[in-house]
Design a protein around this nucleic acid. Structure first.
Lengths: 155, 155
DNA sequence: TTATTAATTGACACTAATATCTATTTATAA
DNA sequence: TTATAAATAGATATTAGTGTCAATTAATAA
C-alpha cells in the first residue's frame, strides 16, 4: 500500500544475480538463484528488455544479460521500467485536484520528498545491490555465478 | 503503486465536510458533499469509528460526527485507521530480509524518509485540510454546511 | 408497541497486480 | 532441413483493494 511494486524487488534480486559475471543466463536459472517465481520473472524481464536495460536472445544457447555495466544501471531506471514513468506522480492524500495552485496540506512536503526519493534511486546503481545480495550467501553457489555460466547443454 | 490508499483520500475529503459544523450528518449527505462513493464511504467511516476518530448513532436522527475537534485529529491517525498501523513498514525495494544488520542500499535512507513522512502526517491536522477543501467551492453549499445540519425530516 | 430511519453487516462484482501455464516464435546444432 | 532450446505472447487463476447491493440491527417518533 505504500512503496514500490513486488516486481521491482524481483528485478533487483534477479539483476544482482545477473551482475555476477555479466554473462547471459536462462530465466529459470536466475529465478532459482534469486528465489523468485520463474514465470513471473519472464514478465519482469520483458519490461527490462523493452527498456533497454537487459538484452535477450532466443533459442539454443540464448538467455538474458545486462545491457551495460552494473555501475551504469540505476535503481530509478529499473523502477521506471517496471512501475512506469509515473510511479511517484500524484498527491500523497490522493486528492485529484491537488496542485501548486490549490495545494493540499502535504503538497509542498510531498513534492520535495518524492523528488528526494527519485534522486536517491537515480544515484544508487545495481553495483550497490550486489554487496547486499552477496550477504544472502547464495550468489556464489548458483548457476548465475561466474563458474556456472549459461552453457549450452553438453553436445 | 506509490502512496496511500484511495480510502485515505476519501476519508480526508469526507471528514473535511464533517468539520464544517461539528454536527452529525448522514453518510449519504457527506458522500454527496465530498463526491465519493456513498456505499464505500460507509466502510471507510466504519474504520474511523472503530479507531475512535468518529462517533456514530443509528436510527432516526442518527448520523456520524467527529469524535473531537479537527485540530486534534491528525492525518497520521486517519492513515493508521484506514491503511493499518503497518502502512509504511517494510523495505523500499521489497527485500524480505532487509534489516539494520543486513541493509539494502536504500535502507538507511528509507528509514529516515518514512519516519519523516510519518512525522509530517502526525503534525498535520484535519483543521489544515478544511482550507484546502474550501477551495473546492462546494463545502459551503452542501448539506454538511452549518446551515444544513442533519436535521430529522420535518414532522 | 409499531413504523420509520440510518448505521451496520455480509454477500457479491470489478479491477489491477501477482502468478501460472500453454502455445508460438526465433535461433542454433546437427 | 530437422530437431531442440529458450524467450515471447497469450490465456487464465489468484489475491487485495475498490465498489455495490440487500438484509439486519439499533434508535427514536408516534
Amino acid at each position: 500500500m505504500f512503496g514500490l511494486s513486488q516486481g521491482v524487488g524481483y528485478a533487483v534480486k534477479a539483476m544482482a544475480c545477473l551482475s555476477e559475471d555479466g554473462e547471459a543466463h536462462f530465466v529459470r536459472e536466475v529465478a532459482e538463484c534469486a528465489q523468485v517465481p520463474p514465470a513471473y520473472l519472464t514478465k519482469v524481464f520483458k519490461k527490462l528488455v523493452d527498456a533497454g536495460i537487459l538484452t535477450s536472445k532466443r533459442g539454443w544457447a540464448g538467455g538474458t544479460r545486462l545491457a551495460c555495466a552494473p555501475k551504469d544501471i540505476t535503481l530509478l531506471a529499473i523502477v521506471e521500467a517496471i512501475d512506469g514513468k509515473d510511479w511517484n506522480r500524484g498527491c500523497l492524500l490522493g486528492q485529484e485536484f491537488c496542485s501548486d495552485e490549490r495545494a493540499c496540506p502535504t503538497h509542498e512536503f510531498w513534492k520535495v520528498e518524492r523528488q528526494a526519493i527519485a534522486e536517491k534511486l537515480r544515484h544508487i546503481t545495481l553495483a550497490s545491490c550486489i554487496e547486499f545480495e552477496r550477504k544472502r550467501g547464495t550468489l556464489g553457489s548458483c548457476k548465475c555465478a561466474p563458474t556456472g555460466k549459461a552453457s549450452p547443454p553438453p553436445s
